[in-house]
Design a binder for these strands. Structure first.
Ligand SMILES: [Mn+2]
Ligand SMILES: [Mn+2]
Ligand SMILES: [Zn+2]
Ligand SMILES: [Zn+2]
Lengths: 137, 137
DNA sequence: ATACTAAATACAATGATGTTGCAAAAATAA
DNA sequence: TTATTTTTGCAACATCATTGTATTTAGTAT
């Protein structure tokens, strides 16, 4: 895929097979992934440490963002143009208690919140847990 | 403090010095605490494992609730009457990027959220990061 | 007060997760 | 192709978390 190389190039990263594979894993599986998930998918091919460093790099460059979870951090693709300077995420994350998958609801924005005097909010992270459409019958 | 013993009794837990100390640590420090925080405060007196198990027990009994964080789980007191059956938490958590403390904003409720068809929300976790009143001058 | 029983703790062992330093390999630039 | 810079793999280490078990303790019955 040339799309992968393009994304890496845009973020000023060298093309390596590990980065291509990690990126394409995020694209193929649609849901948020933990380091362990990636290790499970690619661990035969790459060292644990390399995957850690790839995640760190992608995070810094604005290719992925952290997704809060009640049992460990996950990561998901930044859909819009995040960069090294600013990550902008105002969408909701939904974790299904049945299938266990966590997804970005890109179109569901976190509503405006009024905070008491003195609080200067900068980042918002909303995780909703429940049952997802696939598991809800 | 007899208040501590009372709280433990209400949740059908035996009174032990470790449980009293963990509970009073949560009460004294007002902010959310990680296992590491508690180990730092009480590690001389109790084994790491005992603190883990105390947190697990408190969680199950509805004495504390999880506070999501981008760098590791924390816990905070359940102010209202949570029980073994149901944890009900609809308040906001605020993490200060300066002092690093995370607090429950008990009075700031998470607003109603409209989700797409098929999603059955059950739990809400909203973490707002920024500058807290104490660090904001 | 003492003995009994169930629960909680300490300790050791093990496993999972995450980090650091550095030599070898690979990607880009010259 | 060669030189330069970045990335990777590996090993060592550090931190975090879980499990099993003997001992101790809390609550209860005697
Ligand atoms: Mn997202
Ligand atoms: Mn809270
Ligand atoms: Zn599901
Ligand atoms: Zn602060």
């Amino acid at each position: 895929m040339d799309q992968l190389r393009e994304t890496l190039k845009v973020h000023q990263l060298r093309t390596t097979t590990c980065r291509e594979d990690v990126l394409s894993t995020f694209i193929n599986k649609k849901n948020a992934l933990s380091h362990g998930d990636l290790e499970g998918a690619l661990g035969e091919n790459y060292d644990r440490v390399t995957i850690y460093r790839t995640l760190k790099t992608f995070l810094e460059k604005g290719i992925i963002h952290k997704v809060l979870d009640d049992e460990g951090l996950r990561y998901a693709l930044c859909s819009h143009s995040c960069s090294e300077e600013k990550h902008q995420h105002d969408h909701i994350h939904f974790k299904c208690n049945i299938c266990g998958k966590t997804n970005c609801l890109e179109n569901q924005l976190i509503p405006e919140i009024a905070l008491p005097q003195g609080y200067k909010p900068e980042n918002f992270n909303l995780l909703i847990q429940g049952t997802c459409p696939s598991c809800n019958n």
